[in-house]
Computed example of a mutant assay.
Amino acid sequence: MSRQRVPKGKVFQKQDEKIIKTLQELEKNCSDDFLVSKFEELFPEDWVKIVKRYEAHERLTPEGKSHPMPHPRKYLLNKFKNYRNQYAKGEDLDEALNAINTTQPKFTEETPENIEDIIVQIKDKASFEKRIEAANKLGKFKCEQSITVLRGIVECDKIYDVRKVAYDRLKRFGCEVGPPLKDKPYIDREIQEKFLAIKSQVNETSSVDRYIKKFKSMFPEEYDIHLYQKKNQFKKWVENIVSNLPKIINM
């Protein structure tokens, strides 16, 4: 019997559109309770999906572990935050709704003015999230430099999600490119040696956050891979390694 997993993808579809339509039914400074109730009233099926996704996380997360999804009410309020702030400041939600429903061109055939800055971001070995953001930026501009950089990402980046974004953007450009392979399990056989090197650079009483900061600066690629693979368990993983390090004896 296969192991059960929490469903992937968006919890509910057309989120921005439904958030705006809910706000348009309410006063600008309405309470959280009114907002949640109105969303439940307008989109009952989506509210059920939010609750079910949360319950799946709760059910399938091992005891003592955490999961990334907040309580349904908090989850929904987080989704509303940006548009709610805009609404409170008097911004026209009809214009925002029209922008969402207006088809935008996928890309332009020109070179971005800030391409050098984007390339610097692409080279940030310590942040797969920044590299994904940069790949998406390049995906808006079909030019020789963008194509070259995106091909390099597909071939060389150590994180599958980054390679996949670059691949998708190249396919959208109409380029011939092979799909990236999924990541193999990453085994860092020298992780203790790395953390002993980090320990020699920090104080004996340094916090876990200090170790993480030093890990990022001394071993950016390894930091990035472990952060990507362990996600919200990353800090706990570092804490376990640090707590089991042998003492450094000063001669």
Rank of each mutant, 00 (worst) to 15 (best):
Y87S: 01
K74F: 01
Y83H: 13
L76M: 13
K158W: 11
L93R: 01
E109A: 02
N101A: 02
N136M: 11
D124I: 13
T148G: 11
M69D: 11
E109W: 00
M69E: 15
T108F: 07
R151C: 10
P62Y: 07
E63V: 12
I119V: 14
D157G: 11
I153G: 06
Q104W: 00
L138R: 06
T103Q: 10
K123Q: 14
P62F: 05
N114M: 01
K130L: 11
T61I: 09
A88K: 14
A99Q: 13
I147S: 06
P68M: 10
I119M: 03
K137A: 09
E113K: 10
C143A: 09
D124K: 12
E144K: 15
A88R: 14
E109Q: 10
R84H: 09
S146Y: 01
I100L: 15
E155F: 13
N114A: 06
D157F: 06
A96Y: 08
N136Q: 13
F141P: 00
T103I: 13
N136H: 05
V120W: 00
V154C: 14
T103A: 10
E116Y: 02
E116I: 11
R73T: 14
P72D: 10
L93T: 05
P62V: 09
C143W: 02
N114Q: 09
P62K: 07
A99S: 13
I119P: 00
P70V: 05
I132L: 05
Q121C: 08
Y83Q: 09
K123H: 10
T111Q: 13
P112L: 04
K125A: 10
E133R: 11
K65G: 00
P62G: 06
R59E: 15
Q121D: 14
R131T: 08
Y87L: 03
F128V: 03
G90E: 12
R151A: 06
P105E: 11
G64P: 05
I147T: 15
S66C: 02
T148I: 12
E116M: 06
Q86C: 09
I147W: 02
A134T: 09
H67N: 04
G64Y: 04
N82T: 10
K79S: 06
E116K: 12
F128N: 07
S66M: 09
K125M: 04
A88W: 00
T111S: 11
F107W: 04
T61V: 09
Q86E: 10
N78I: 04
K140Y: 07
M69V: 10
T102W: 04
F107T: 03
E95I: 15
G152A: 11
Y87C: 01
N85E: 13
D157S: 13
T111C: 05
A88N: 05
I147A: 07
S66A: 11
E63H: 05
P68K: 07
E109P: 00
R131M: 07
P72S: 05
S146R: 07
K74D: 14
G139Y: 07
F107M: 03
T103P: 00
T61L: 09
K65V: 08
I115S: 01
K140Q: 13
I147H: 03
N136W: 00
